[in-house]
Simulated scan of single mutants.
Amino acid sequence: MSIPKGFLKFSGIMLLLGGIMGFTGQLIHLGDVPESVQDIPEFLKGAVNIHVLLAYASTFILMGLPAIFLRQASSLKWWGWLSLPLLFIGLMLEIFHGPVQIIAYPIIFDFVHTAADLQHVSDLLNNMAIDRFPLQLAVFIPIIPGIFLGLLLLGISALRAKVFPKAPAIFLFVVFAIQILSFVVPVHIHLLEISFAYIHLIFVWFGALLTFEKANKSVSQNNNDVVMIKN
């Protein structure tokens, strides 16, 4: 099987752009609701712009994601391929909350004029009305397991496949450990609070490897099956 160099390079660029955009968006991400009525205009401007950035970031990452697996095709075990649908589901569903901030927030907060209005809207947004619409959980619950399990399998399979350098896979495990710490550490530590941003750096690293890899190189060999990169 041959993989066109142009496809790998395009996918790598998508991962690079998506990862950088996602990392930036997560770093400047605002709270889910404004702190006061006076903060609403500035909050809306930031919320809309940031979530447009994050929506495109995840879209670009999803466009480039299959190339990470195709690049290792002959060396991946069946369980290594499970990382692709897990990451795809997690990242895709993570995009879904974006339209609320992009489209709905300007409409919703236009009706907020008092502190009582803001508190009521904030309670609705924070609670997501799960008691009345439990199917909302079908969108939110798979996000964290999908991304976490997908990353874990990607790191293990990348180390075993020995197609990419070890460094990005090791970095992936470091990021995974930071994610776990961010859930269990009770104190507020800024580096842990922005831990989701680090996930995007994993895709930046893999994107750079795909973008700048030389052509005409054998990817892997398994049972006489060789995957080639061709111009």
Rank of each mutant, 00 (worst) to 15 (best):
I3A: 05
P4R: 01
G6V: 14
L8P: 12
K9F: 04
K9S: 13
L16K: 02
L16R: 01
L17P: 15
F23P: 09
F23K: 00
F23L: 05
T24Q: 09
I28H: 04
D32H: 07
V33R: 00
P34S: 00
P34M: 01
E35Y: 04
V37R: 08
V37Y: 04
Q38P: 04
I40M: 11
L44D: 13
K45I: 05
G46T: 10
H51T: 12
H51K: 07
V52P: 14
L54P: 15
A55D: 15
Y56C: 07
L62D: 05
L62E: 11
M63N: 05
I68F: 06
I68L: 13
F69L: 14
R71F: 15
Q72P: 15
A73M: 14
S74I: 07
K77I: 13
K77T: 05
L82W: 07
P85N: 04
F88K: 00
G90D: 12
L93Y: 06
E94R: 00
I95S: 01
F96T: 12
F96Y: 11
Y105C: 07
P106W: 01
F109G: 08
D110P: 10
F111M: 09
T114F: 02
A115D: 15
A115T: 14
A116N: 08
D117C: 02
L118M: 05
L118E: 07
D123R: 02
L124M: 14
L124Y: 09
N127C: 10
M128T: 13
A129S: 14
D131F: 05
R132F: 15
F133T: 10
F133K: 02
F133P: 13
L135D: 12
I141R: 05
P142C: 03
P142Y: 00
I143R: 04
G146D: 02
F148Y: 01
L151H: 05
A158K: 09
R160I: 11
A161V: 09
K162D: 14
F164A: 03
F164V: 04
P165W: 01
P168T: 02
I170W: 12
V174N: 01
A177T: 09
S182R: 01
V185L: 06
H188N: 10
H188K: 10
E193I: 07
E193M: 06
I194K: 07
S195R: 00
A197P: 15
Y198Q: 06
I199A: 03
L201Q: 01
F203L: 10
W205I: 04
G207E: 08
T211S: 13
F212R: 06
S218Y: 04
V219E: 10
V219P: 11
S220D: 11
S220A: 14
N222E: 12
N223K: 09
N224C: 07
D225Q: 15
V226E: 11
V226N: 07
V227M: 07
V227G: 03
I229T: 06
K230C: 13
